[in-house]
Nucleic acid binder design. Structure first.
Lengths: 168, 168
DNA sequence: TATCTGAGTCCATTTTTCATACTCAAAGTA
DNA sequence: TACTTTGAGTATGAAAAATGGACTCAGATA
C-alpha cells in the first residue's frame, strides 16, 4: 500500500479552497485518521493487537492462534515495537531459559476503544453466529463504546456526524 | 492474508479447556473482532471508508484523494458493496450521463465509532502534527468515543478490561 | 556430549500490488 | 452523422509482499 501525495497536497492554499465538495475536506497528510490507518490498518497487525489485548505475549502462541507465517509475524512485531505500541518483556519459566514476550504499552492499550467498537459492530452487523470473545471489566460487566458530544451527551445516530476541515 | 484453522479449532471440546492461558481464550472462528478485521481490516479498505465517511461518493474522487491504483479501488469497492457496507447510488449531473457513486449503508455508517476511536487514538498518540480533519455534529461539537460498562458508567482506564471466553 | 525449545531467519514459490494504458457507453458538438 | 469528452472501470507486465517449510541459534537439561 503505497501512499503518495493526494490532490490537495498538490494545490495552492488558494486553489484548495475552491476544490469541489466531492472530495475529502482534508488531504491524507493532515488527517489523523489516515495516520492511524497507516500505523495499524493491516489485517495481520490488527489480529496481533487482538492477541495482545487477550494477554497473549509469546511468539509461538500468536503463531499458533493466528496461523500467521513466522516471517510476517516477526516483521509486524518489530514494527509495533518500533512504534511503541508493543514492548518486549523478558520472562523466564522455571527450568527454562529467559525469553522475550510482547505486551501492550500504554499507547498500545489506548487502542482498546477502537477494538471494542469493531467487535461491537461485528456482533451487530456481521453474520457468523454469536461471538464467544467477551471484553469485560474484572467484575464481569461487558464493555462497549459510546459516541459522545463535546458537552458530554451521548450521540445515538452516527449519521448526525459531519466531517469538516479545521480552519487555518 | 490467508486465515486458516487455528490451534483451538483443531482441538476437542475437552482438550480446549486444558489449553494454556498463554493462548487467546477464543479461536478466530468464534471471535467477532476477528470477523470484523477480516471484513474491513485492510489499509485501502479503511481509507475508502474514511472517504465514504467524508461524503466522497465517486470513483475518481477517491482515486484522486487516496492515490490508490484504479484496479485495487474497483476490487475493494465491489467487495464493500457485496458485504452491504457501501451501496451504489446512481446520480446525474445536469448535461451529464447517469453514473454510479457509492455511499455508506446503515451497516457501513455503524462503523463510525470505530473510526472515531482510531482518530482519537492517533491524535493522542501518534506524531505528525495536529490533524485538520474534524468529526463533529451539525452544530459544531466534536465527537469522541467513551468506553462504557454495562451499567452505563464510563470506564477511563482500558487496562481494567479482560478478555474471556463466553461459556458454552 | 547430545538433545530439546522457543524465537526467530532464509528462501523458493505464489499471490497481490502497482502504474500505465486501454475500453466502454452516453452526452455534447461540429 | 461523425467526432470528442468524461467518468468508471479493465487489462497487463513489472515489482513487491505473503506464504510455507526448512534452517539457525542460544541456553537449559539429560
Amino acid at each position: 500500500m503505497k501512499i503518495k501525495l493526494c490532490y490537495a497536497d498538490r494545490m495552492t492554499e488558494h486553489a484548495s479552497k475552491m476544490v469541489s465538495s466531492r472530495h475529502a475536506p482534508v488531504p491524507l497528510a493532515e488527517c489523523a485518521l489516515a495516520r492511524a490507518i497507516r500505523a495499524i490498518g493491516d489485517g495481520w497487525t490488527l489480529l496481533i493487537l487482538r492477541e495482545a489485548l487477550c494477554g497473549v505475549e509469546r511468539f509461538d502462541a500468536m503463531h499458533d492462534d493466528l496461523g500467521i507465517p513466522r516471517s510476517v509475524l516477526a516483521e509486524r512485531l518489530s514494527k509495533l515495537v518500533a512504534e511503541g505500541i508493543l514492548e518486549q518483556r523478558p520472562y523466564r519459566e522455571p527450568g527454562r531459559r529467559q525469553r522475550n514476550g510482547y505486551r501492550l504499552t500504554e499507547k498500545g492499550r489506548a487502542l482498546t476503544p477502537a477494538l471494542v467498537a469493531l467487535r461491537e459492530w461485528s456482533e451487530a452487523h456481521l453474520p457468523g453466529g454469536p461471538s464467544r470473545l467477551r471484553l469485560q471489566t474484572q467484575d464481569g460487566q461487558e464493555v462497549t463504546t459510546r459516541l459522545t458530544r463535546a458537552d458530554g451527551s451521548s450521540l445515538d445516530d452516527p449519521s448526525e456526524i459531519v466531517a469538516v476541515a479545521k480552519p487555518e
